[in-house]
Amino acid sequence: MSAEIKLRLHRSMYMAQAIKDAIGIFEDFARFEMKRQDDHYNVDIHDIDPEVDGDLAGEFCNFALAHTIERKRKTPK
């Protein structure tokens, strides 16, 4: 089955763990596939629950971004 939504999250801007956290949060509402490809993490979102009210991909992106920022702040440089 082809992906319903494809997201490309740049590896220098998003932490893998933050993306995994986001997947963990939203996996009840869709199926996620995350793959590393060149400079990006490709996240394919399949089988989005038709009951989902709102922009799942958008919420996913904001969550991954916010968690990246929070994680980077906590991680000593």
């Binding site: 997201l7 490309r8 999250l9 740049h10 220098s12 801007m13 998003y14 400079d39 922009d55 991909a57 958008g58 919420e59 992106c61 904001n62 971004l65």
Partner: peptide, 9 residues
């Protein structure tokens, strides 16, 4: 809070 944001480079 007002937009969905995706950053890229």
């Amino acid at each position: 809070d007002r937009a969905y944001v995706l950053l890229d480079k």
